[in-house]
Amino acid sequence: MNLSSLNFFRSLSTNNKNQFAVVGLGRFGRGVCSTLHYLGYEVLGIDADEKRVAQVLTDQIAAHALQLDSTEPAALKEGGIFDFDTVIVAIGNYLEASVVTTLNLKEGGVAHVVAKASSEIHMKLLTKVGADHVVFPEHEMGCTLARSLTKPAILDRFDLDVDNSIVEIIIPDDFHGKTISELQLRSRYGLNLLAVSHDGKFEINPNPNHRLYKGAAMVVIGSNKDINRLPI
């Protein structure tokens, strides 16, 4: 997560509105709609395809849905889209429509525009026209898959920046039966232990006398270089 992303999410956290608009109702857009709707937020789904709009309403994954051409500023204004504080542009596979829609939303005064990119060039263009946050899910999923294949003991990972991460890992065999204090993770590996799994739940800031057992998981924070030194 870079500083621009951090600033974006900090700005988003000050927004008390519970309404979101999602432009583009393909697989990605439907996923965003259904998750936001499930979490209790009011969601407006938008697409140029009448069938997609109807399907969203039938599946009840959005409170409202509109058929309109998001590349036309007048259509967005008439649909009330400029009144939304946060709009997600999920038109990943149609570069021109995605970029023009993002530009229209920013020029229309939308405070937070999140856009999906399908390539590096697409990402750069979206940033140029004012997207506040750009996601590249295919790239991110590819990186996650590659990491899971080369480091299968790492169950989950959150990159703080290019050099540091928080990772959830399967407790290595070398750590089995030892207490946290005995492992001396900070002095030996330069890592800080945040949590350890126990009976299906995580214990945050576990006691130094807590004994670790293989098959369980632990969460550590530190540099990627130090994380790679773990016996996993």
Rank of each mutant, 00 (worst) to 15 (best):
D159A: 03
F175Q: 11
A195N: 12
R211V: 05
N209D: 00
D159P: 01
I166Y: 05
V162A: 15
I166N: 02
K214M: 05
R211M: 09
H176R: 13
T150P: 03
L155F: 02
T179F: 15
Q184T: 10
N209C: 05
L193K: 04
V162Q: 13
I169R: 01
R186M: 10
F202C: 01
F202S: 01
L185R: 05
V167Q: 07
N207R: 15
G190M: 06
V167L: 07
E168G: 09
D173H: 11
Q184R: 13
Y213E: 02
P208L: 01
S181T: 13
A153D: 10
N205G: 04
G190I: 07
G215F: 08
A195Q: 05
I204H: 05
P152W: 07
H210R: 03
Q184I: 13
Y189E: 11
F175V: 02
G200R: 07
H198F: 03
V167G: 03
L193M: 09
G200S: 04
V196F: 03
L183Y: 12
D199C: 03
T179Q: 12
K201W: 05
I154A: 02
I180P: 15
G200K: 02
N209A: 01
D173Y: 11
S181Q: 13
I180T: 13
L183M: 14
H198A: 03
D159Y: 09
Q184G: 09
H198D: 10
K201P: 05
V167K: 02
S165T: 03
F158W: 09
N192A: 15
I154N: 05
N207E: 01
F158M: 07
G215H: 02
F158L: 11
H210D: 00
E182H: 12
H198N: 10
K214G: 07
F175H: 06
V167N: 02
R188S: 09
Y213I: 09
L212Q: 02
D173E: 11
I204A: 06
N207T: 04
E203T: 02
T150I: 12
Q184M: 14
H176C: 14
R188I: 10
N205Q: 09
G200Y: 04
R211S: 01
N192M: 14
I171A: 05
D159R: 04
L191G: 06
H210A: 01
L155T: 12
H210T: 07
H198C: 03
K201V: 05
S165H: 02
D156G: 11
L212K: 00
D173Q: 11
P152T: 06
P152Q: 07
L193R: 03
S197L: 03
K178L: 15
I169N: 01
H198S: 05
G177P: 14
I180V: 15
S187F: 13
T150V: 11
I166A: 00
E203N: 06
G177I: 15
S187K: 14
E168V: 08
K178V: 13
N192E: 10
T179I: 14
P172S: 08
D199P: 00
A153W: 11
V196P: 01
T179D: 14
V162N: 12
N164F: 02
R186E: 09
K151E: 05
N205F: 01
F158Y: 13
H176V: 11
K178R: 10
D163P: 08
L194S: 12
L155K: 09
I170D: 14
N207A: 10
I180Q: 10
V196M: 05
D161P: 08
